[in-house]
Design a protein around this nucleic acid. Structure first.
Lengths: 130, 130
DNA sequence: ATGTAAATAAGAATTGTTCTCATTTAGGAG
DNA sequence: CTCCTAAATGAGAACAATTCTTATTTACAT
């Protein structure tokens, strides 16, 4: 049996779980997913590692929707739509924040711009029916 | 002495406080401000009325910075800079989100767009020094 | 004066997130 | 192999922001 590094077993699972979904999940959602596979993981471990990934720049936190923080394994700047009915977050990959806005922002704010978030809110198709 | 409507005394004070600052404050900040004037107001009253104003469209919540929700008496769509060092939020009034992005977003998401938030993050001038 | 419906104060309850600490793990040194 | 060390984890306590509950107060109409 090959030597396997179990040291980062949970850590890797968390990153993998986040990166293989486009639901922009919360810590709790990831926790529930992993519990169904692993049956032994702690919510604290999920939070701890998400914070670490964020510091390392591997992931980003895109918004807090209805009081809960939502994460994204895609660190490239991109635009989101957030449904105020069901809290779903989706990518709007055909929209870009014009680059010149960033440099204007930096000058106006007298700051070094490090990130930029554009998100639209509204009711998604499903929620409009109900 | 003229009849004065004291019924909405606190409520009006909260809205007035929020609308007369450009600090994009938290509920707690408003509470502390009013305590210094009024000396008898409850934090729950601040939260309750902010939620009401939001539902009525009189104010908006622009982001949650470091776990706390920040409010804005200016409901017109506008752009913010958020300092990750000191949590200050400032308006970037010379930047606009291009109007056509909104309609593109609506089509892409298959949704009725109701709001749009663009914010830049980084270190403000002061925080860059330290 | 009395009744009413809305607004409030105070603090309890809730909830998302972080912290603490004892335990486990991987991998290296003896 | 056994011991050692440092990092990772699980479990639950602690924390902080927000919401809820309930009794009280208020303005106003009757």
């Amino acid at each position: 049996m090959a030597l396997q590094n179990k040291h980062f077993q949970k850590r890797d699972a968390i990153l993998k779980c986040l990166c293989s979904t486009d639901t922009h999940p919360s810590a709790d959602w990831i926790y529930e997913q992993l519990r169904q596979q692993d049956a032994n993981i702690s919510l604290a471990t999920v939070y701890r590692n998400l914070a670490l990934f964020k510091k390392q720049g591997l992931i980003q936190s895109i918004a807090t929707v209805n009081g809960v923080e939502r994460f994204d394994g895609n660190t490239a700047p991109h635009v989101h739509f957030i449904c105020t009915g069901c809290d779903a977050v989706q990518d709007l990959s055909n929209i870009q924040v014009p680059q010149e806005l960033c440099s204007t922002a930096g000058k106006t704010a007298g700051a070094r711009i490090e990130g930029c978030q554009l998100s639209f809110t509204g009711l998604c198709g499903n929620c409009q029916k109900s």
